[in-house]
């Protein structure tokens, strides 16, 4: 009898917890891999494809699946460090196949040379180029991520990447101001 009661009680408890766990797994289901979202948030979202993936999200997915973390050229060392922290791996130097110069740039269309072929418009991942067939195109500089993708498709090579000029708005302080001294 005692044996039966014991089995019954434990069976009930097991069933109860089983039901509870089953309910929780449905109620608190996580749809996507959250790590992908977190990596994607770290990436600079230039959508440049320099990593070999068609955009930042696919690269984030790839990193989550074990791809090297040092392929994001626009993000540079900072991004690599952040991903390394997030993934709990060692930070590596940037992939050597990329250019060293990752100053912020924007694309610029030399407008007198533009023939209005719309090829760059199709290439732009963030729709930052304005224009129509046989009309001159231009870059919306504020939306341009400097990804470089419009340069190659241009049949007349009228697009160039220009470094964003330093202004008083984006100037980073340097130590040329005066320190204060005791005056007698």
């Amino acid at each position: 009898m005692t044996l039966l009661i014991a089995i019954l009680v434990f069976g009930l408890i097991a069933a109860l917890f089983g039901a509870l766990l089953g309910y929780a797994s449905i109620r608190f289901k996580v749809d996507a891999d959250p790590i992908v979202e977190q990596i994607d948030a770290i990436l600079p979202q230039t959508q440049c494809g320099q990593c070999g993936y068609p955009g930042c999200k696919p690269y984030a997915q790839a990193v989550a699946d074990g791809e090297a973390i040092n392929k994001c050229a626009p993000g540079g060392e900072d991004t690599i460090k952040k991903i390394a922290d997030l993934m709990g791996v060692e930070a590596e130097p940037l992939d050597e196949s990329h250019e060293k110069d990752n100053r912020p740039k924007v694309a610029f269309i030399i407008e007198e040379d533009c023939i209005g072929c719309t090829k760059c418009i199709q290439a732009c991942p963030v729709d930052a180029i304005l224009g129509a067939a046989k009309q001159m195109h231009t870059i919306i500089a504020d939306e341009c991520t400097g990804c470089d993708l419009c340069v190659a498709p241009c049949p007349v090579d009228c697009i160039e990447m220009r470094v964003v000029p330093e202004t008083t708005q984006n100037w980073l302080w340097d130590l040329n101001s005066i320190p204060v001294q005791q005056i007698d």
Partner: peptide, 17 residues
Amino acid sequence: QQQELKAEKAKARFEAR
């Protein structure tokens, strides 16, 4: 912060495209 804002915007535009 500005870069983050810009990245956010670029992402939205990329998704929309």
